[in-house]
Design a protein around this nucleic acid. Sequence first.
DNA 1: GGGAAGTTGTTTAAATTTGAAATACCCCGT
DNA 2: ACGGGGTATTTCAAATTTAAACAACTTCCC
Lengths: 157, 157
Amino acid sequence: MSDERSLNPAELAAWRAVVESSQRLFIAIEDDLRTSSGLSLADYNVLVELSEAPGRRLRMGDLATRLIFAPSRLTYQVGTMEKRGLVSRQPCPDDRRGSEAVLTDAGLDTLRAAAPGHLRSVRRHFVDDLDAADLAALTKIFTRIDERLTAARAESR
Amino acid sequence: MSDERSLNPAELAAWRAVVESSQRLFIAIEDDLRTSSGLSLADYNVLVELSEAPGRRLRMGDLATRLIFAPSRLTYQVGTMEKRGLVSRQPCPDDRRGSEAVLTDAGLDTLRAAAPGHLRSVRRHFVDDLDAADLAALTKIFTRIDERLTAARAESR
DNA sequence: GGGAAGTTGTTTAAATTTGAAATACCCCGT
DNA sequence: ACGGGGTATTTCAAATTTAAACAACTTCCC
């Protein structure tokens, strides 16, 4: 647009709205999840990813990528969930460096118990405020941003 | 929409797109800021808030609210910035319980040095992908979400 | 085959974030 | 003026996150 050194008011307003509101949104939804199920959003997302994966299991690296977690963070995260019996860890059959996180039955039960409340929370704080056009716009915009980021990341290697 | 227990595909797609992409977006922009200026996004935002405040100073509580920081987190954050000479802390004149964070000249210089690069980064990863309609849509949507959250928070007290 | 080079995960220590409790103070009603 | 009930910020310990250094494999390429 104008000066490439700064942002015009419309650009700045959009950027600040996204930064601040998304922050508050995630906090509100995580608070709901914590009080209704005792799970953190990270816990929940691990359970979702594993439950959707074939064999209810994923390589640590895959899981880390999907969750956008640094490797050591995932090691810790899965460690705490293992202690609580939600997942177990198994050595990877074909690659002995690797290990897999596996969803336990208890983990699946926990997810099933937590999901309705969480989805209700997402609906209440997010979806209910939006019409179909809004949803489409958000999906388009954030998908595009993500593609660009991925492309940029690929370049810088 | 349909079943109030879950989300339909369009709703789920929008939610996941926002969660994942915004995450990656913030990480990318913070990485840029870190390498170009050595500041974290939290550092930067503190500097921005103080620079825009009358007298370049804010009560700790106000600052915490604007940054969406828990009080003790802000105490720590300002502590590290004080060590680096970016801000100073002064007792609040009219309320002896309180203290104010004050932007130092060095802090302002640091902000001025960091801002162009940061804004360029925001432009590159975010603004450049969007047209005026996208920006307006984002501003509208996230402002609405924020209003609802604030209303909900007010209710629950 | 042998080893250099690259992967995958974990470990460690340090930095950050959280949450509860402590501290210091304000303000209102008596 | 005094007590009780808030409010503002810090302190402290525990939990989480990060970054760097490792250990154990795999892969490539000769």
